[in-house]
């Protein structure tokens, strides 16, 4: 199943398929390690549901839904990694 990172529920994880969007913001997402193949895990949401806090490549990254929607992931099921 595919999902945008902005649609993750807390506790879900996925493997990045592609990063959409354009320009500087997209490049920044790449620089922060959001590249195809990377595993991301949604740790929590801020009050009011946005921004989101992800774990990837061993650190915590905070993103807004506006930016997270550019990242499309293949969902990973628990225990099936």
């Amino acid at each position: 199943m595919q999902k945008q990172m902005s649609d993750f529920a807390v506790g879900e994880s996925g493997r990045i398929l592609k990063v959409q969007g354009e320009g500087k913001v997209r490049h920044r997402l790449f620089d922060m390690g959001l590249t195809p193949g990377a595993e991301v895990y949604l740790r929590k949401k801020a009050p009011m549901g946005d921004p989101l806090e992800f774990t990837l490549r061993g650190y915590e990254l905070s993103l807004r839904k506006d930016e997270a929607q550019y990242v499309v992931c293949e969902m990973l099921e628990e225990g099936k990694k």
């Binding site: 913001v25 997402l29 922060m32 921004p51 806090e53 915590e60 990254l61 905070s62 506006d66 930016e67």
Partner: peptide, 9 residues
């Protein structure tokens, strides 16, 4: 502007 920020331990 976007908000892309590392959260330190």
């Amino acid at each position: 502007p976007p908000f892309i920020m590392e959260l330190p331990a």
